[in-house]
């Protein structure tokens, strides 16, 4: 009897949690598909028919399509750069013992509490000087500096999970250290690295402050939304919110195995 009550309580709590976290997501997707006439009809809570009109307008009329492409470009460049720069550092942190290692780790951790807006404004001035103001590349560079510490820590933790003996076996049996990393360790680390790349993507895809400050015309999707949403009709807001949310949610679905460990690291 006691066991059944406990079970019922768990089911009830699970439902409440699911409702709490899912309802807003479901509602915004629903709202983005609701025709304007039905949305403004106070007697209809749920729409009787669905439309892709708003999404179409967002993408085509309101330049959402260009902004999405911009976001993808920024994220792509930022991920590429931060892995290029950060992976060697992550490797050094796991595979070598050297002086100043702990200091370096601490330094990386500290950057996580660095307010993004302190970085953004001086970069506007700097970018004007070196001629990359209002460019996507400039935003990507700024995003790289946010993602890079995460990539260093996460790759170091992923590589730590792959026994150094695999790599050493490679070196014993005829590979150089670099070859051994490339041919033995990297393939083994790939699933984890892919998951962390997705996390890096979400960081960049969602970032709004720096992107808004650094650009006027070439805006990423969240920056574009932030600066046009207030003056736009409601349906635009819903469509925008949906477009922002869905890719991130799909990506996180593929990385759910790594959820706890990665966010744990990215937030520490």
């Amino acid at each position: 009897m006691r066991y059944r009550i406990k079970k019922a309580l768990i089911v009830f709590a699970s439902i409440m949690i699911a409702l709490w976290f899912l309802t807003p997501v479901v509602l915004i997707v629903l709202a983005s598909l609701t025709p304007s006439s039905e949305y403004y009809d106070p007697h209809k809570i749920l729409p009787t028919k669905l439309t892709l009109d708003h999404l179409y307008k967002l993408f085509v009329v309101l330049d959402g399509w260009q902004a999405t492409l911009n976001s993808l470009e920024v994220a792509g460049v930022a991920i590429g750069l931060s892995f290029l720069i950060g992976l060697p550092a992550g490797y050094a942190l796991t595979r070598f013992v050297f002086k100043g290692k702990n200091f370096f780790r601490l330094l990386i951790l500290l950057t996580r509490s660095f307010p993004a807006l302190v970085m953004a404004v001086p970069l506007v001035v700097l970018y004007l000087k070196i001629g990359i103001s209002d460019t996507l590349f400039g935003v990507a560079l700024a995003h790289t500096s946010m993602i890079l510490p995460f990539v260093v820590l996460i790759t170091s933790s992923i590589l730590a999970g792959i026994s150094v003996e695999y790599e050493e076996a490679g070196m014993i049996f005829g590979l150089s250290r670099f070859q051994s990393f490339l041919k033995i360790t990297l393939p083994l680390a790939l699933p984890g690295l892919a998951a962390s790349a997705i996390f890096a993507f979400i960081m960049s895809w969602n970032e709004v402050f720096v992107a808004s400050v650094l650009t006027l015309i070439n805006r990423t999707l969240p920056a574009h939304i932030l600066n046009t949403a207030i003056a736009s009709p409601d349906y635009f807001k819903f469509a925008a919110g949906t477009v922002m949310a869905v890719p991130a949610m799909v990506f996180i679905f593929f990385t759910r195995k790594y959820l706890v460990s990665m966010w744990g690291i990215s937030l520490k």
């Binding site: 026994s163 695999y166 050493e168 076996a169 014993i172 049996f173 005829g174 150089s176 250290r177 393939p187």
Partner: peptide, 29 residues
């Protein structure tokens, strides 16, 4: 470097590469 010494090694954890089949593990060197 290790690769030029003509040595081989059996590791404590064996270090049998998990992404290769047994045949490939033995053949890889």
């Amino acid at each position: 470097p290790p690769k030029s010494r003509n040595v081989s090694m059996v590791f404590q954890s064996y270090a049998v590469w998990p992404h290769m089949k047994v045949y490939d593990n033995i053949a890889y060197p």
